[in-house]
Amino acid sequence: MLTLHTNGMTPGALAVAIALEEKALSFALAENEWQATPAALAAFSGADELVNSIEGEFPILADGDVAVNDTFFILEYLDDAYPEPPLKPADAYGQWKVQALNRFLGERAMPAVASLGVAERFTGQGIVDEVAARFENEPLLTPERRDAWGMALRDPANEEVMAESHRKAALLLDRIEGELAESGGPWLLGEGYTITDIAAFALARPFATGELRTHDKEIGERTRHWCARMEKRAAVTTPLQLGEPVFLPAAEHARWG
């Protein structure tokens, strides 16, 4: 029995849901209110890796007795545990490309998309101090996660974070456009559809739909067509109907270099 635990349909949760659909795996969706994130995480407090996530508290995929987190590693796990249909290249170099691209998406792009989304979502919402304080004083969360939630709720459009996020979001759009140009499409790595398409789509889609914008950077033509191709896949259509897109604080921006 597979259960996808989320605190909303974040880009990470969307990516995992798409991968589950691509694998034709039936799953239950356990969606928690974002305000209840610490309480929901407490159910997994026996696993150090789950409560010390760099990326954020959710998504978590429970697969019988196994529970795994971190969006890109959940996608890798699904392809390792359920190999058909394959969502990674068969050759070692193709797998290297997947992992190198996923590193970029996780370390550079995801924090930027999350920060821009958090600014859209929480600015002017009048989040009460009590809610922010609850996250900031939650002992189950790591100090970095307490800070991330505190900043998202108290200062969602922090000027420095916004500048860095716009810069990195532009890198994301450039990278996708560049990969599609280099591979010749129709997918990021060429003819083969992979978990990198899924992960990148979940992050780039808000810019294609207009939910998010970057300064001085329009989404490229190749990227727009690639997004449209993604949206036509049956395994993408269903997860998009699972809930409204949601943005919550994700991994922190790299502190150095």
């Binding site: 196994v66 795994v68 987190n69 971190d70 590693f73 959940i74 796990y77 390792d80 545990a81 996780g106």
Partner: peptide
């Protein structure tokens, strides 16, 4: 697969 996931988790950490 679960151990491989753990390997990757720690490498990212």
């Amino acid at each position: 697969p679960a151990k491989r996931w753990k390997m990757r988790w720690w490498m990212k950490y």
